[in-house]
Structure formats: C-alpha cells, structure tokens
C-alpha cells in the first residue's frame, strides 16, 4: 500500500466513459423514482382500500420491497422472470427492480405523510365551502408534501447508490463501468476513488438542491 504509486492517466483517459456511466446511473435513478412515486401514490390509496385483494397486494409489495435484499430483487427480475421466458435486459431488470423497491419504500413514506396531517384540517377546509379536490390540492397536499420531502430525498439517494448493484448482472452503470475499466487498466484504486468522487458529487448535489428548495418552500 505504501508503495502504491497513483497513476491517474488511465482515469483521465477514460473519464468520458465514467461520465457516460454516471449518466446511466442518474437516468435509472430519476426514472425509478418517478415511476416508483407514481406507483406508490396508487399503492398508498389501495392500502386504505376496503378491498381485501388490493390491501394484500399492497401489503405484500411493501413487505417484499422493504424486507428482502435489493440484490435479490434484481435477481428476481433478471433470472426469475427469465425462467418464465420473460428475458429482461440488465438495464430493464435493474430499472424494474429499483422501481419496485422504491415504490415499496415510497408507499410507506406517503402513508406516513398522509397520517401526519390532522384530519380536522380537511373538515375545516370543507367547512369553508371548498370542494374535496380543492381541499386536497390547497390544504392537504402541501402538508403531506412537506412531511414526505426529506424522506423522499433520502430515498432518491438510496436509489442512486442502489443502482450500483446492477453491475452484478453486467449493467455498466457507474460501478459496473468502473469495475470493467480497472480490470482493463489494473488501476483499481484510482478508478474506484474516482467513481466514489462522482457518486459523492451527485449525492451532494441532490442534498444541496433539496436543502435550498426546502428552505425556500417551507418557511412555515
């Protein structure tokens, strides 16, 4: 270790590849959070449903997503579905698995956010003559949004780091690409440090943006 001489030339040479891979990571993160959030909204509503099927579907989804390893979830989408003749590409499998995982966590986050709003708020707003839609949009949603904002930010970061599991099924997102390049150049330390730095920059960017937005939006 002490004799290790850092040689950054290989890293610089392959920097465009790393940046491309980072964009792939970012892309999966953004898509999996957006789709996951859309699913979570539906699941959060079903979770309160009288319909036993919908309730159990949601409960099962949430439990599988949160209480099993994310890697296993990726395997299920990649190898598991493959056994049924549904062959997903590594990209599709990772996107599906991370989305599935996000949806589970986000459902619980949304549920907590809805529970955080005092039900008497809705009653008071209805009492002013607002329609249920107005009550939801102007009174309930802003409060839910604040309650879920920080947990969702954390989930975005979790998803971004979680995409690195994709390398195991051959996806060349940032970690996968890094692993590939270091094996070609025999500069593992430099490449993994560089990748770590890129992850850090991406995560810190999300955090700083979230913090600035929160300071502006949640003065109350």
């Amino acid at each position: 270790m002490l004799n290790y001489r850092f040689q950054w030339r290989a890293v610089f040479k392959h920097l465009p590849d790393l940046v491309d891979a980072a964009f792939l990571t970012l892309q999966i993160t953004v898509l999996s959070v957006i789709i996951g959030l859309a699913i979570a909204v539906i699941l959060a509503v079903w979770r309160r449903s009288e319909n036993a099927w919908l309730f159990w579907l949601t409960a099962t989804w949430v439990a599988l997503a949160r209480n099993t390893p994310a890697l296993l979830q990726i395997y299920l989408f990649y190898f598991g579905l493959g056994a049924y003749g549904i062959h997903l590409s590594p990209y599709a499998a990772v996107l599906a698995a991370i989305t599935f995982n996000n949806a589970g966590y986000l459902t619980e986050i949304l549920r907590g956010g809805i529970d955080a709003v005092n039900p008497s708020q809705g009653r008071a707003a209805l009492g002013l003559g607002m329609t249920p839609l107005q009550v939801y949009a102007r009174v309930i949603f802003p409060q839910v949004f604040r309650a879920v904002f920080l947990p969702i930010t954390n989930q975005i970061i979790w998803a971004m780091l979680g995409t690195s599991l994709g390398m195991i099924i051959g996806l060349q997102e940032l970690t996968g690409m890094t692993t590939f390049l270091q094996s070609q150049t025999f500069r593992p330390f430099e490449f993994y440090l560089a990748a770590a730095l890129i992850y850090l920059v991406m995560v810190e960017t999300v955090l700083v943006c979230a913090r600035l937005y929160a300071r502006w939006a949640f003065r109350w």
Binding site: N118, S120, Q121, R123, A124, A125, G127, L128, V139, P142, Q143, R146, W220
Partner: peptide, 15 residues
Amino acid sequence: LGIVFQQFNAFPHLT
C-alpha cells in the same frame, strides 16, 4: 354556514 372547531384548524402552510 361558517364553522369553527375546538382544535385550532389554522392551515399551517399559509400566513
């Protein structure tokens, strides 16, 4: 019909 409840129902996100 204006209604006011026992719990303070001010909307917290609004001035």
